[in-house]
Design a protein around this nucleic acid. Structure first.
Ligand SMILES: [Mn+2]
Ligand SMILES: [Mn+2]
Ligand SMILES: [Mn+2]
Ligand SMILES: [Mn+2]
Lengths: 236, 236
DNA sequence: GCTCTGTTTTAGGCATGCCTAAATTACTAA
DNA sequence: TTAGTAATTTAGGCATGCCTAAAACAGAGC
């Protein structure tokens, strides 16, 4: 018995697979390996195979699946994945803006509720928020019609030294990392420059126009994404 | 696999059984027959038997179950049922007051979400609402600690003619009936008197101190509950 | 007390979605 | 080209929670 509380024919599990494929396939829409999915979802590869077979023989098919060569989303699968992603990010924004959640708390709750809110509630929340474009971590919220333009972000670890950057988003996967990032003042919208120097274990980062710099471990830096800072653009 | 999104060990299905038993056992805490549960839940009696066996052998047991003689809630079962009922009614109040839902729309959404909100979200919602006592249909919201005093309501069909009454609550089970009731102006808090006369197919009801009366079919009247109107008490 | 009828339980099955263990396949490197 | 290894798939199982059909039971009326 799949959870009674499903809105349409989609199960919670299938939704999670679709979201995972969307995330892991990257902007290039690469095929995603069973193993990668298994690790991401915290289940066994054998289980993934079974579900990919099911998803690929659903009508309409949600993934294209080639034995031993991974899966990618079909148009229908991508549509559903973006739908759930929109729910997730709208919920995060709503919990943060209207219900006093910290940005480190919203992910867990949204992860659960994203599967169970109706289109009506989605619309009411979006209206209440004024159709926001970004979630509290700076991630783009897919539009209602399925439009979704992933930004051209670069991981801070791969950003050239000395080039002015703007923090565009931060991973929301780990709550304590989020608190650490916040403590350092590295919210989305913040201007940063990576100072020249060794980049082995940590980066030397200057925030905004400040004189002092901070040391940022690889672990945290890996969760921060930036875009080029043009002279016009400024911190939000 | 039970829905991953369960908050604790409770499944959505078990929660629904517990809520149903709470509702059907009435203020007297009568035992509830398998058949009554099957009808209420829209499933087969055979399935009910299986679940009652499971609920009664859980540790801690959630129902006391005697073969062929129905089930009643244990303390733990009642606690959980009230927990879910609190979620439901808080959600209804929240959707109605903050997200522009009509009182005929809230039930369906709350019925789904009640199983999936965390204790944290429950608390945030309650705080935002100022710890409300009643849901939009006039039903008492159980307290956080499990306290719950069912009011001494009487169905309008059983109310004596000529005795002033106050509408205390209205069934939320059918959305179109709710719209009909609202159209007639019979919200909770409204003063009514059932006029003397034949009570076969419909009641003649006078609202507040108005001169005119309205005809109320049995079907709708059966969904309205009232309490005695003391001279002091007045419409909300 | 006995029978009849409707209720309830048992027995056997099915779909979902996970698991482990045992094949099988694909790729890499000698 | 051919092992060897790692990834992947198959096979078989389990828990949940529903179903139908058939058996067992309880309470009412006689
Ligand atoms: Mn949606
Ligand atoms: Mn986010
Ligand atoms: Mn609760
Ligand atoms: Mn209600």
């Amino acid at each position: 018995m799949p959870s009674k509380s499903r809105i349409k024919g989609h199960t919670e599990s299938a939704d999670d697979y679709l979201k995972a494929i969307l995330e892991l396939s990257g902007p290039e829409d690469q095929r995603v390996a069973s193993n990668a999915l298994a690790i991401h979802l915290g289940i066994r590869a054998a289980s993934v195979t079974g579900m990919l077979q099911k998803l690929s023989t659903d009508k309409p098919a949600l993934v294209k699946y080639q034995k031993h060569h991974g899966a990618r989303l079909t148009t229908a699968g991508r549509k559903r994945a973006l739908e759930v992603l929109r729910h997730h990010r709208l919920l995060e924004r709503f919990l943060h803006d209207f219900l006093d959640y910290g940005w480190d708390e919203v992910h867990e709750e949204a992860e659960r509720l994203e599967h169970f809110i109706s289109e009506k509630l989605e619309d009411k929340i979006a209206a209440k928020l004024g159709d926001p474009l970004l979630d509290p971590h700076g991630h783009v919220i897919p539009e209602r019609n399925g439009a979704f333009s992933a930004r051209d972000e670069v991981n801070l670890l791969n950003w050239a030294c000395g080039v002015p950057a703007l923090i565009s988003s931060v991973s929301d996967r780990d709550a304590s990392d989020l608190r650490a990032i916040e403590r350092l003042g590295l919210r989305p919208g913040t201007s940063v420059v990576v100072e020249a120097g060794v980049r082995n274990a940590s980066l030397l980062v200057r925030i905004g126009g400040q004189n002092s710099t901070i040391r940022l471990g690889q672990h945290l830096a890996a969760q921060i994404f930036v875009v080029a800072r043009t002279p016009q653009a400024s911190a939000a």
